[in-house]
Amino acid sequence: MDANFLITTIIGTVCFAVLAPVIGCLIDGIDRIVSARMQGRVGPKLLQPYWDVRKLLGKDKVAVSGSEDTYIGLALFFAILAGGIFFSGGNLLLVVFVITLSSLFFIVAAYSTRSPYAEVGAARETLQVMSYEPMVLFMAVAFYQVVGTFDTSGVFLLRHPAICTAWGAFIGLCFVLTIKLRKSPFDISSSHHAHQEIVKGITTEMSGPTLAKVEIMHWCETVLFMGWVGVFFVFSHPISILVAVLVALVIYLFEIWVDNNFARVKWQAMLKWAWIVALVAGGLNVAVLAFI
């Protein structure tokens, strides 16, 4: 690991830590308004997620387990680090593993509370990780095959965007994105409204500043995943960055639409479909790229 890489990663991480929550918060605000409109409601103001988190930060710390907050802090740190590596042109495979590490700390935090709802939620979150991880790895491999390196900065040297040859992996990514963004029909570990059998699932016992960190972590994750979507459309032409942003927005709107118009599935169905999509879309894509 040379010093140059270290410095760009640190700068990238700091920038991501500042910008991602802002962008993520705005995306969340838009999400709420669009969802409300789809349901025929007016919806909250654009900055409602910001005010929510600000209020959460101002609350007293009431936690059943003291370690919970530490784990959430680590989960947030690794989420930001993953974003930093990704947007500073770092290794995509490393990003995938760091964001998984973040998820694992999130799961451990839920387990540490010993609440039955949080435990079931954590068990389901583990299943979610297990469901989407193969597809995410296929995506990284397909990326390597197309770009010739795991470094995301490599896309700027491409003559065609990665989507031209890796569209199978892209479709697979869009599918697991629903799981990663905790959208219905795959919001089984913790739904946006606590109207399911395990209340708020994995975040049931989290409150105040801890919950605020979870929210910020989700914002960062959203920005990172949108980056994954966008990276398929970036190539040497500078206008492609604009195209990537637009595509990411379209995909996000599509996710909101899916969220509103599907019933939540059970984990058995989620696991089955996530793996089928991963093997068919991701696996075939990787196999085809390997033989070309």
């Binding site: 969802s35 789809m38 349901q39 025929g40 409601r41 219905s184 029909p185 919001d187 739904s191 409204h193 109207h195 399911q196 969220d259 509103n260 118009n261 599907f262 019933a263 939540r264």
Partner: peptide
């Protein structure tokens, strides 16, 4: 029922 299985827009339309 729609709300319980996470079908938010159906829920809202029923109540409307």
């Amino acid at each position: 029922a729609a709300d319980a299985f996470g079908y938010e827009s159906l829920f809202m339309h029923c109540w409307r």
